[in-house]
């Protein structure tokens, strides 16, 4: 793995963490609704996965975290505006943080019903295959979403059609308050790939090189017409289900926090000599300033007209 790529993944992961922590603060202050599902603990893997793709490969993201958007350079000001009901957002106030969209950056949105995007990805795969664009459709979802019937219908039909799709399940062990051991019959979500005759791959979400390798291999396979791959990222969820979730159902939070992939990556970047401690501190300050500027710009934007409620229903 190239050092500059690793450093970029670290920089974007740190920016994501700072952005989301600020978002949670804004939610506590009542500036935005607490609807962000923080991706802390999963951002390194999200950003590494995106780094293995081409910039125009369409992405349908999971509901947890904003690493996908930060990786593709979606405006933080616009995402905040979506949530705060201000002008200049990506979805005109219609979808908040759950439905951030920027097709110019390959960000194609998210389903409000979890696992609901899987079916959309199949049609997107059919379209890019028919139009021979050479793109790969990448769909992220959680272990919870993988228990929807849409998972079965979508992976089966995508495999039958050998669609250029990559399915990435971020298994963080929790579907809201229910541990995966109580909701899911198999130990690994990737084991289900056997049921569709496609490769099932497991990677450690704290290892960006492993994530990149797995996604690159899957994308090459998809691009060459061999069909989809199911990748399972073993991830951890550092925060609650939503921004202000007290997580009183959970006993493992303190233990999990010791294995923060961002901390692991930070130590690695320093030990490899890519950055000094001081440079990481400077980077953190820069990220905070960038987020602060996004917040200020969002707050300077006018509120959306309530009449926007009637717009964007149909062409």
């Amino acid at each position: 793995m190239r050092n500059d790529v690793l450093a970029d993944i670290f920089r974007k992961s740190l920016l994501t963490r700072v952005f989301e922590d600020r978002f949670v603060k804004l939610a506590m202050e009542g500036v935005v609704p607490p609807l962000l599902h923080p991706g802390a603990g999963q951002e390194v893997a999200q950003i590494a996965a995106i780094a293995a793709l081409k910039d125009d490969d369409p992405v349908l993201y999971a509901h947890r975290g904003t690493g996908y958007m930060i990786a593709r350079g979606v405006s933080m000001r616009a995402m905040l505006a979506d949530c705060a009901g201000r002008a200049g957002g990506t979805n005109n106030g219609k979808g908040g943080i759950m439905h951030v969209v920027d097709t110019s950056k390959g960000i194609f949105g998210e389903s409000g019903t979890l696992g609901g995007g899987l079916v959309i990805s199949v049609g997107m795969g059919m379209a890019v295959k028919k139009k021979k664009t050479g793109q790969v459709v990448v769909h992220f979802f959680g272990d919870g979403g993988s228990n929807r019937g849409t998972f079965h219908e979508s992976l089966n039909w995508a495999a039958v059609q050998k669609l250029p799709c990559v399915y990435i399940c971020e298994n963080n062990g929790w579907a809201v308050s229910v541990p995966v051991s109580e909701s899911t019959a198999v130990e690994n979500i990737a084991d289900r790939a056997h049921g569709y005759g496609i490769p099932g791959v497991i990677v450690d979400g704290a290892d960006p090189a492993a994530v990149m390798d797995a996604v690159r291999t899957a994308a090459e396979r998809a691009r060459s017409g061999q069909g989809p791959t199911l990748i399972e990222i073993k991830a951890i969820r550092l925060r609650g289900h939503y921004a202000t979730d007290p997580q009183d159902y959970r006993a493992d939070a303190a233990e999990v926090a010791k294995n923060d992939p961002l901390e692991t990556l930070r130590a690695r970047v320093i030990s490899m000599g890519l950055m000094t401690e001081a440079e990481v501190e400077t980077l953190l300050t820069e990220c905070e300033a960038e987020v602060q500027q996004a917040v200020e710009e969002m707050q300077a934007s006018p509120p959306l007209s309530p009449e926007a409620a009637f717009e964007d229903v149909m062409v």
Partner: peptide, 14 residues
């Protein structure tokens, strides 16, 4: 997936 793929295909220009 029949209906959902229709939405996805339509989004991508079919």
């Amino acid at each position: 997936v029949l209906v959902g793929a229709g939405v996805g295909a339509a989004v991508m220009g079919l």
